[in-house]
């Protein structure tokens, strides 16, 4: 079976790279093809998700939650079946907003194994809940 592809993008004006880099590395080691885009606007995230024909979009949420929510809306409207997950220093009220849009959310303290398990589930590699 072909490897599943995941887009990793950073929303908002946030220059913290360690989190998404470590997550990308864990996903790579789990057999995913991880496309790093870095800090990106909503339009750039959508364009990358389309061009790269990814199976999952991962958002590292930095800066204001409204910006992240706009990115989620744009991806979901252009690619209606695209699963998304999010991580980063996300306060509880913002986690709820993301979860309400159907995202799996990984705030600080989340285990890499849980993130990888989520990626497997969201790309259809495993069906366990």
């Amino acid at each position: 079976m072909r490897p599943k592809r995941i887009l990793m993008a950073k929303t908002g004006l946030d220059g913290h790279w360690r989190g998404p880099t470590i997550v990308a590395r864990a996903l790579r080691d789990a057999g995913f093809e991880v496309i790093m885009i870095g800090m990106a606007t909503t339009n750039e995230i959508v364009a990358a998700a389309v061009d790269e024909d990814v199976d999952l979009v991962g958002l590292n949420i930095g800066g204001h939650i409204d910006v992240a929510l706009r990115a989620v809306d744009a991806v979901q409207s252009t690619c209606p079946d695209m699963p998304l997950f999010a991580g980063g220093t996300i306060p509880p009220h913002a986690c709820k907003q993301l979860e309400a849009k159907g995202l799996e959310v990984f705030p600080p303290g989340s285990a890499l194994t849980d993130i990888v398990a989520s990626a497997n589930r969201l790309t259809g590699l495993s069906s366990q809940q």
């Binding site: 490897p3 790579r28 789990a30 057999g31 093809e33 991880v34 496309i35 790093m36 870095g38």
Partner: peptide, 19 residues
């Protein structure tokens, strides 16, 4: 691609101002 896991980190977009 990794010869061990088949995974890959595709990082060329990070450098490119295609935007």
């Amino acid at each position: 691609s990794s010869a061990v896991t088949g995974g890959a980190l595709l990082g060329d977009r990070v450098r490119i101002d295609y935007r």
